[in-house]
C-alpha cells in the first residue's frame, strides 16, 4: 500500500506532482514578489501585510548558484540513513526577479549544472516514516 503524502510545510507550494508551483506573495502597491508569502523581507513602500496577495510563482528559471551538502545538515533536517550528499541550488525567476533555493532532485550530477543552467520546479520526498512521505519542492533540470 502506498504511503500517505503530506507537504513538509503548509502553504508554500501546491501539492500537485504533475504541476507543482510555489505559493508566493505579491504587493498590490509596488508589484514586488515575496517567497514565502510571509516570513520574507518586507517592502516599506507596501502597505502592511494586507497588501500581500497570494500568487503562484513561475516554475522555471536559471541557476543563480549552487553548492553541495557533503556532510549531514543539523536538526531539524531529517536524515535518512545512510546519508547521501545532495546539491542545493538557488534559482532565479525572471518574471518575479527573485532567487529561490531548494535541493536539486537526486541523481543529478554536479558536472551537469552551472550558473545559468535552466531549472524547473519538481516535488519529491524530503523524508518519510512508516506511514507518511513528507513532500517538499526541489529543482530539476529542464
Amino acid at each position: 500500500m502506498s504511503k500517505n503524502r503530506v507537504p513538509a510545510v503548509e502553504g508554500m507550494f501546491r501539492m500537485d506532482f504533475d504541476n507543482p508551483q510555489l505559493i508566493g506573495g505579491r504587493s498590490k502597491a509596488t508589484g514586488t514578489y515575496y517567497f514565502p508569502k510571509e516570513l520574507s523581507g518586507s517592502d516599506p513602500l507596501a502597505e502592511g501585510s494586507t497588501d500581500r496577495e497570494e500568487v503562484l510563482l513561475s516554475t522555471e528559471g536559471t541557476i543563480w548558484s549552487f553548492t553541495t551538502a557533503s556532510y549531514p545538515p543539523a536538526l531539524p533536517y531529517q536524515i535518512t540513513e545512510p546519508f547521501e550528499p545532495f546539491i542545493i541550488c538557488a534559482v532565479e525567476l525572471e518574471k518575479e526577479q527573485i532567487v529561490v533555493c531548494g535541493q536539486m532532485m537526486p541523481g543529478i550530477d554536479i558536472d551537469d549544472i552551472d550558473v545559468g543552467t535552466k531549472a524547473k520546479l519538481a516535488l519529491d520526498v524530503l523524508y518519510e516514516d512508516n506511514e507518511t512521505e513528507h513532500i517538499v519542492w526541489k529543482w530539476d533540470l529542464v
Binding site: 553548492t67 545538515p73 536538526l75 531539524p76 533536517y77 531548494g102 535541493q103 517538499v136
Partner: peptide, 15 residues
Amino acid sequence: RFRLMGLSNPAYFGM
C-alpha cells in the same frame, strides 16, 4: 531552511 532543504551556513558560503 534546515528542515526543508538542509541549507546550513556553509551552503551559503559555497553558493
